[in-house]
Amino acid sequence: MKKISTPLTDQMINSLKSGDEILLTGTIYTARDQAHKRLSDTIKKVKKMPVVLGGQIIYYCGPTAAPRGKAIGSCGPTTSSRMDEFTPLLLSKGLRGMIGKGRRSEEVIKAIKKHKAVYFLAYAGCGALISKFIQRVRLIAYKDLGPEAIYRLEVKGLPLIVAIDSRGRSIYN
């Protein structure tokens, strides 16, 4: 299986093809519904972003609380399509990768192709298993959103499937 480290480079993204199974090591940021709404409002109002999106990967995930002695609780992917209305704007601000589950809209696929990004799938409904690949967690923004806050995760060897590659080819087609 191909091993990929963050930050994602153009060359790396180019080499990924829809259907590839990879192991990801490095830094990713969680964000789901409400965080997307806030990030999108911040961009529209031209205010300071809590995360610099350039070159980064967003993981659609709201983890459970970490039990004592663990970095994180259960932390699988949530349904990506709910983020579709915000995604093209985030991609236009430099976001390069997304991790989630399920299909994306035509607009998102077009934006992925335009901005040479990539959309990965994580094993859906396997939050306990995925927690094994997360080494460190840090709260970055929107603490009031609880599990929907933005967390920075350091991951090692996280298994992912390339669902939409930078040429806009989807695993579902």
């Binding site: 995930c61 039990p67 396997c126 939050g127 306990a128 298993l129 927690s131």
Partner: peptide
């Protein structure tokens, strides 16, 4: 492979007292 991960996930959850899925 995915079904295997799902079955493995259930056993990790039970053993480590973690939620099977983060969406509880």
């Amino acid at each position: 492979r995915i079904l295997n991960a799902i079955i493995k996930n259930a056993s990790i959850a039970k053993r480590e007292k973690l939620a099977i899925c983060q969406d509880t």
